[in-house]
């Protein structure tokens, strides 16, 4: 099943890093999508004041491309929700909602756009469907953490 974490404020890199490390270390979590507004362009202002940095999740370096507005998580089991709630309580200071009302937050079926992008004949592994923005390059948006590769 899918859940959505909706923080009441857009999260910065530090909180996102802590949150993702704890969430990714749970066995119940299958995959995670960060959704939110894109980070501003890399210029002098961004270098001086910006929040852009490379975060480390489970030992893997992940470059943040967006500000964390929502986190969609696919779970193997429902019991993960309470664990995620306690992780969020710990790291998100300004309040959050955990939404479970939709049956899925991450798309599970291949679409026509996928066919056009990757070719209708190519096989796209199931776990890669729906995790990248359909209007951008797959490699720009998806980081594969080594821990999940054997599963």
């Amino acid at each position: 099943m899918d859940i959505e974490i909706f923080p009441h404020r857009i999260l910065g890199a530090d909180t996102t890093e802590k949150l993702l490390n704890d969430i990714e270390s749970l066995d119940e979590v299958k995959r995670t999508v960060l959704q939110g507004p894109r980070l501003p362009p890399q210029d002098d202002i961004d270098r001086r004041y910006g929040d852009r940095r490379i975060i480390t999740v489970n030992g893997e370096e992940v470059e943040l491309k967006v500000k964390t507005g929502r986190i969609w998580i696919e779970l193997y089991e429902d019991v993960g929700i309470e664990k995620i709630r306690s992780i969020c309580d710990e790291h998100i200071k300004n309040g959050f909602d955990i939404n479970t009302s939709k049956s899925q937050y991450i798309r599970k079926q291949r679409t026509v756009t996928d066919d056009i992008k990757y070719g209708s004949g190519t096989e796209l592994p199931e776990e890669f469907i729906g995790i990248s923005d359909t209007r951008s390059q797959f490699k720009d948006n998806v980081d594969i953490l080594r821990r999940d590769q054997g599963e």
Binding site: P7, G12, K67
Partner: peptide, 25 residues
């Protein structure tokens, strides 16, 4: 929604939060 540091979204980034001084510039 506000940023985590309390700043309102600004597409042109006029007012920015200086983490070192804790002031808005």
């Amino acid at each position: 929604r506000l940023d985590e540091n309390g700043l309102m979204f600004d597409m042109l980034r006029r007012q920015v939060f200086n983490k070192e001084t804790g002031k808005v510039e």
